[in-house]
């Protein structure tokens, strides 16, 4: 079940991605409309984070390409934002919540520029949106996990992008943060932004997202959740037989196949 979209804003074309010559994503090919909250769902090791990282060009694919708003990624970077996994940075870093959120304004000001009052205003608004304004001057090392996650969201908001990629924002957060993130996702999709969220918990997925991308190294289904969230497709995602891909992957790793 792969739903085709007429006026897509994200087009992923036949993406194949490898680590050490071994493909971890095979021929991923789909597109998404605007104004939705899409969840990327699949078991551990399904390549969910790899998918969003290669869509954003952080990992270069063996094959295939991505277009956002019909343009190659490098033309459009300022309209794309990213919320990395919380564990990807060192929270002992000497910075305040405000310092981190201001980073979202970097591209607006260029190489040698400086943040101005407008940037600070936008950063404050972004913190407000995730209920973190009271903590603006708190050092990030003293924030709870959920609060750190919200700071990351605020940073993405401050960028005022149109499409957001989020890597496991719900992982290990408290109830308040969960509610706050959900709220935010809804609000933003109402204002026409698109959110693509990596999520590992099948239980909550149906409540969180409008669309779903079922992934297990290959694409199983993409579409509105009512169409995609079926026993059959879930079964295929979590228990699908991949022996052909696995064998092929091993051959490729051994052969050092030249690119």
């Amino acid at each position: 079940m792969i739903k085709r979209v007429d006026n897509s804003i994200l087009e992923v074309h036949d993406l194949t991605v490898s680590y050490h010559n071994k493909p971890v994503l095979w021929n991923i090919d789909f597109d998404l409309p605007s104004g939705i909250v899409a969840g990327i769902i699949g078991p551990n090791g399904a390549g969910k984070s790899t998918l969003i990282k290669s869509i954003m060009g952080l990992i270069s694919p063996d094959q295939g390409y991505t277009k956002i708003f019909g343009q190659p990624l490098n033309e459009i970077r300022s309209r794309v934002s990213y919320v990395p996994q919380r564990e990807s940075v060192d929270w002992d870093f000497p910075a305040s919540a405000m310092d981190v959120v201001l980073m979202g304004r970097y591209s607006e000001r260029g190489f040698w520029g400086r943040y101005n009052d407008e940037d600070r205003k936008i950063a404050k608004q972004s913190l407000e949106q995730v209920d973190m304004l009271p903590f603006a001057n708190r050092q990030i090392s003293q924030l709870s996990g959920g609060q750190q996650q919200r700071v990351f969201l605020a940073r993405a908001l401050a960028q005022q992008a149109d499409i957001y990629f989020m890597d496991e924002p719900f992982a290990g957060v408290d109830a308040a943060t969960e509610a706050s993130i959900l709220n935010l996702l809804r609000e933003m999709s109402h204002s026409g932004k698109t959110m693509i969220v990596v999520h590992h918990d099948l239980q909550s997925a149906y409540d969180y997202f409008d669309w779903m991308i079922l992934l297990n190294r290959r694409l199983i289904a993409v579409g509105p959740k009512a169409d995609v969230f079926t026993d059959e497709l879930i079964q295929e995602t979590y228990g699908g037989n991949l022996s052909i891909l696995a064998t092929l992957g091993n051959i490729m790793q051994q052969k050092d196949y030249p690119k």
């Binding site: 079940m1 792969i2 074309h13 036949d14 194949t16 095979w26 021929n27 090919d29 094959q63 290959r218 694409l219 199983i220 196949y257």
Partner: peptide, 14 residues
């Protein structure tokens, strides 16, 4: 794998 028919040639070449 449910890839669209017009997208499969390149991979098959490899």
């Amino acid at each position: 794998m449910k890839v669209a028919p017009d997208h499969v040639h390149e991979t098959a070449e490899v």
